[in-house]
Amino acid sequence: MQKILIPTDFSENAWNAINYAMQLFRNRKCTFYLLNTYTPVIPSSRFMAKMIDGVSIVDAVRNSSEQGLKKTVDRIKTKYGNSNHSFETISSFSLLVDEVKDIVETFDINLVITGTKGASGIDEVFMGSNTVRIIKSTKKCPVLAIPQHFDFITPSEIAFATDFNRFYTISELNPLLELAKMFQATIRIVHVQYGIKALSELQQFNLNMLRRYLSDTEHYVHTVSELNSVSQTLELFSEELDIHLLALLNYQHSYMEKMTREPIVKRTAFHTQIPLLVIPELGMSGVSKNHVEQQVISS
């Protein structure tokens, strides 16, 4: 994880995500790409001002974006002064989700870190709409969502939620394994079931392969009965076992998909109280042919 993208709107929510990133990778050489997007309203009426003190609205917003990024980098360097870290700033007249997707591909980004803030009341949403859109559109690297008021805790306890219905490749598990190795963390594999029952033959095979991948990492398997919803169940599990980071693989019919589609009433208890690492579905695209053959032979 050497190239990390952090979108920011200069809010305290975004600053909290930056703080988390600086501390999480404090001992790693990284390049952080700080992104701010802006989409100023272009006046179409002669009654609306097109200039502010002789400067076009577009130029004024661009200048504000660029200055905001510069101040953010200065603030980071003043607080942390970490020689392992370098910074690039990107100010873009674009939509946030589109720009994130383009930057991930252009700069071969390894991880996106974003602050998240859920709405409240009747507008309750899971994690915040921008975060969900980024997760759904980012297909080539993981997204780490940091809750608004979460203070950094070294992630020594990591939960990985899975239903064992899918075979995971090592390329998909690498972000999880990398974090566990960085902090000598324990990985707790959590399987949420609607009514406890024995694993199918396919599920057992996938579990065995998963445990083989995790053979050099301390790990445990937990099977829990679903409560009101998957999200609420995982939240309660995380609280009871003092989990510092929750990881999910995002694919069709995955827990991540279920959580973003759960009815509003069912997910009101879930506000992403801990950082959430969402890993995209890579399948065999990130695995060499030789590696696949070795997996088959060894199994």
Results as ranks from 00 to 15, higher is better:
173 L>V: 01
31 T>P: 05
53 D>K: 07
164 F>K: 13
199 L>V: 08
129 S>F: 06
299 S>A: 11
107 F>Y: 14
34 L>D: 04
210 L>R: 04
74 D>N: 04
152 F>Q: 14
73 V>I: 09
230 V>Y: 09
291 H>D: 03
297 I>Y: 15
84 N>Y: 13
282 L>A: 14
289 K>V: 06
99 E>H: 09
242 D>C: 08
196 I>A: 10
261 R>Q: 14
248 L>M: 09
264 I>Q: 14
188 R>A: 04
292 V>F: 08
271 H>G: 12
198 A>W: 10
201 E>D: 13
71 K>I: 10
32 F>N: 02
71 K>Y: 10
218 E>K: 15
289 K>R: 10
66 E>N: 05
275 P>E: 05
3 K>E: 04
219 H>Y: 12
151 D>E: 15
200 S>R: 14
100 V>E: 10
268 T>D: 08
94 S>L: 00
223 T>P: 14
29 K>S: 09
120 S>F: 07
106 T>M: 12
5 L>I: 00
40 P>A: 10
40 P>D: 09
270 F>D: 01
113 I>Y: 06
153 I>C: 15
264 I>P: 02
232 Q>C: 12
149 H>N: 15
273 Q>I: 14
20 Y>E: 01
168 Y>K: 08
37 T>D: 05
193 Q>I: 00
133 R>E: 06
163 D>A: 12
115 G>S: 04
208 N>L: 08
13 N>M: 04
165 N>Y: 14
247 A>L: 01
151 D>C: 12
33 Y>D: 02
10 F>C: 03
19 N>V: 00
132 V>E: 10
51 M>T: 09
139 K>A: 10
274 I>L: 02
